[in-house]
Simulated assay, not measured.
Amino acid sequence: MKNGIVQSMSRKGNCWDNAPMESFFGSLKAELVHGARYPTRDVARRDLFAYIEGYYNRQRLHSALGYITPDQAELRAA
């Protein structure tokens, strides 16, 4: 806790706490990062930002959301 960060730990018998993030990182690795070589961290950051904001949140359909995008789900919830 040196930097004020507390690790997220699932409780015993509750394996769903991290499932959304594990799903996201699995998609990120399969759709963007696997096999990619970035010459600098800035190039990697730009690519990741473009994927998340330009594709994952605005275009990619999510089965858990009823095959709509996260942006559409957020608008419906508002």
Rank of each mutant, 00 (worst) to 15 (best):
M1Y: 07
M1D: 10
M1S: 14
K2H: 09
N3D: 10
N3T: 08
I5R: 07
V6K: 14
V6G: 02
S8R: 11
S8I: 14
M9K: 14
M9V: 13
S10G: 15
S10W: 03
R11Q: 12
K12M: 05
K12C: 03
K12R: 15
G13I: 07
G13V: 01
N14R: 13
C15H: 07
D17M: 08
N18I: 03
N18T: 07
N18K: 14
P20A: 04
M21T: 10
M21Q: 14
S23F: 02
S23V: 01
F24D: 02
F24M: 08
S27F: 05
S27C: 08
L32T: 03
G35I: 00
A36W: 02
A36S: 10
Y38Q: 05
P39Q: 15
P39F: 00
P39M: 04
T40C: 08
R41E: 09
R45Y: 11
R45E: 14
D47C: 12
D47L: 00
F49H: 14
F49L: 06
Y51W: 15
Y51Q: 01
I52D: 04
E53Y: 03
N57H: 13
R58S: 14
R58M: 06
R60S: 02
R60V: 01
L61V: 06
L61D: 06
S63G: 13
S63F: 03
L65D: 05
L65Q: 07
G66C: 11
Y67A: 02
Y67T: 05
T69I: 08
D71W: 04
D71V: 10
Q72W: 02
Q72F: 02
A73I: 02
A73E: 05
A73L: 09
E74Q: 08
L75T: 09
L75I: 12
R76L: 15
